[in-house]
Design a protein around this nucleic acid. Structure first.
Lengths: 204, 204
DNA sequence: GTCTATAGCACGATAGAC
DNA sequence: GTCTATCGTGCTATAGAC
């Protein structure tokens, strides 16, 4: 890993626990194992490191959506129709994937914490936070459930309300089991219970 | 309002948007309209201001739980039984109260933002955050729904799963409509839709 | 209980040697 | 691309006049 990559890596770790303002350039340099002045050969300012992290996450999100087979903004409808019939088991698996990705993925987990911390000091950051963890998620799940209703897996219902009923517990448990004090296994167990209750409620 | 109270007030505003580390003692003093050195006649350190805010919130939470008729830790079961039969309309009203309190109450709204920002830098803060917005809420709602099932308002179901299905959307919408960019009315409307869908699902 | 002044330190960032 | 040295600033906190 290049020094530049290591700076981004260590900066993300520090930003995600102590915040942007709570992290000094020297903290980052110490973590990397170089002097703070050397860091300025790779980035022209502290802010540029932050911006690089946001860009890096955007790149990884796009890559991940391909791996998951998740649709991006423009093809969301097409992708839902490409699923074929989605079983309850596949829904459980999807919720696990989303939960573990946002909680534990080495980059995504820290990135989510960082945005959670920084959202109130900057409107642009708040917009990115809401887009990723709220609007995009709900929009995607809404299309998914519209398709599952069409397929006859679920009975007729308000797909957007369903999406919130499906995703809100994931979001809630994500925030609850975010602490090192909580075991991820407990979180996964509670998540699965909620998804099965959800499926039971809407099953045709 | 005394100078000491005004310091707490302005500090909370700043901590809740820029974070503890992002707020200097001078920022607080400027907002109050005194010199930073004068502030040390009221508090011996910046940290003491933070701690005073946390104590003040604990006091207000207790007062508010009496106003709402919400039970505290020790009398949670007794209080649920004191409700009498709870209608769906009363449930809608309860969700509105909780939502608006945590979102808009002049103190509670800023306090929640502050804890959201500061939760990852300190385990003790994280524990307070989880207790208030997760554990206590879910525990209280679980007892509430156990009682509503007993009363025959809702059909037999896992009361804890119900509590999460009721509260997670409140928590999600709270975080979504936290931004000045979003209208509170839209949030309340979306909340009511979710609560009515919830009631429809579990209604006997 | 407010002020001025300042101690003592950490901050982000730059200059220049190697 | 790393280092040492340093600039100018802002930080928490204290001392002491009024």
């Amino acid at each position: 890993m290049s020094t530049k990559e290591r700076i981004v890596e260590e900066a993300l770790t520090l930003f995600s626990s102590r915040g942007y303002q709570g992290t000094s350039v020297k903290n980052i340099a110490d973590a990397v194992g170089i002097k703070d002045s050397s860091l300025y050969k790779h980035f022209k300012s502290k802010k540029e490191i932050f911006e690089t992290i946001v860009e890096e996450m955007a790149r990884r999100m796009e890559a991940m959506s391909h791996t998951f087979g998740l649709p991006d903004d423009t093809t969301v409808e097409a992708a839902a129709f490409a699923y074929g019939v989605i079983s309850v088991e596949e829904l459980v698996e999807l919720s696990r994937k989303v939960f573990l990705f946002y909680l534990q993925d080495p980059f995504a987990g820290r990135f989510r914490r960082m945005l959670t911390i920084e959202q109130y000091r900057d409107r642009e950051i708040a917009a990115v936070y809401r887009k990723i963890y709220m609007e995009d998620s709900i929009r995607y799940q809404t299309v998914l459930f519209e398709e599952m209703i069409r397929q006859g897996v679920f009975r007729e219902a308000d797909a957007r309300a369903m999406a919130i009923n499906f995703y809100a517990p994931i979001f809630f448990l994500l925030n609850k089991y975010d602490s090192p004090e909580c075991s991820v296994e407990d979180g996964l167990e509670e998540l699965e219970r909620q998804v099965r209750e959800f499926a039971r409620i809407y099953h045709k």
